[in-house]
Amino acid sequence: MSRHVVIRAGKASFLMNKKSIWILTGLTLLTVALIIVSLGIGQLAISPVNVVQAVFGAGTDMENLVVRSFRMPRILLAVFAGAGLAMSGAILQGIIRNPLASPDIIGITAGASFTTVAFLALFSDRSNTLTVSIHWMPLASFIGAVAMGFLVYFLSWKRGGIAPVRLVLIGVGLSAAMQAMTTMMMVLGPIFTASRANVWITGSVNGTNWTEVLTVIPWIFGLTAILFFYARRLNVQELGEDLAVNAGALVQKDRFVLLFLSSALAGGAVAFAGGIGFVGLMAPHIARQLVGSSFGALIPVSALIGGMIVLVADLIARTAFAPLEIPAGVFTAAIGAPYFIYLLYRSRNK
C-alpha cells in the first residue's frame, strides 16, 4: 500500500501523506475542542456541555446570549484571522525560501496598518465619531496589504526577476517607513483615534460582531480554495529558481500570483483583527515539523495551527488581567520573537 494519497480535482492535485491526514483530523478536532473550552471561559464560566447546548440555542437565555452574541464572534474571528496569517506566512516562506519570512517582516501588515489608521484618522470628525460606515475599514486594510505586497514586489524586480533576499530587505525598509507614516496619522488624528488605532495595530479581536465574522469567513475560504490550485506550484518554487525553471514552471508568474494570494490573505485577516504579529512566522514552522514541507498538507495544517495560536493568545489576553483587555498581538509577539531567535539558532546546527 502506498504511503501517499493522491488528491485530484481538475487542475488541483497534490500528494498527501497518510500520516498527514491523521494529523489534520486530529488538529481539526483539537481546534473544535479549544473553541468549546474557550467559549466557556470568562466572567461567566460555562461547562463544555452547556456551551454546546448554548451554541445550538438550547441553553439558558443568559448562556445563549453570552456564548452566541459575545464570545462566539471574537473566537471565530481569532481562528480565521490566525488561519489567514498562517497561510500567508506559509506561502511567503515558500516563495522567498527563507524560513524567516512572514507578512509582518516584509511589511504587508505594516502597509495594512497604515491605510487603516489613515482611514480612522481621516474619517473621524471632532466628536470622535466616524463619518463613514465602519464597514469600509476592511477595504482600507486590504488595499494597504495588497498595495504593499506589490510595491515590495515591483521594487525588488531587477533584470527580469525577483531575488528573494532583495524582496525581504526592501520589505524591511518599507515596513519601517510605513510605521513612521502610521505614527504620523496617529499624531495628527484626535487622541481617541490614536488609542483605538494603537489597539488595532497591536492586534486584538476584542469587540468583534457577527457582521465582521461573516465578512471574513468567505474571504479566507475563497482564497484558500484558489490557493489549493497553486499548492503544487508552490512545491516547485521551493526547489529554487534554477531547478524550478528546469522543471518547467513559470517561476516569475507563479511568484506574482502567490504573492497576491499571500497579501490578500494577510489583508483579510488584518482587516478585522489588526496586526497580530509573528503568527505568520510561527505557524508554518510548527506545521512543517508535523507534516513536512509538501504544501498540500502544509497549508491546511498551518491554517489550523495559526488559528489555535491566536485563539489561545486571545484567551490569555482577555482572562489574564481581567477586567482589563490586552491586545492578543502582545502575547503572540512575546512567544513569537523568542521563537524567531530559536529559528536563527537552529540554523547553526543544520
Partner: peptide, 17 residues
C-alpha cells in the same frame, strides 16, 4: 537585518501593549 527587524517588531509591539 532580519534579526534586527524581528527584534524591532517585538519591542514596538510591547511598547504598543
Amino acid at each position: 537585518t532580519l534579526a534586527g527587524a524581528a527584534i524591532a517588531a517585538l519591542f514596538s509591539s510591547m511598547t504598543q501593549g
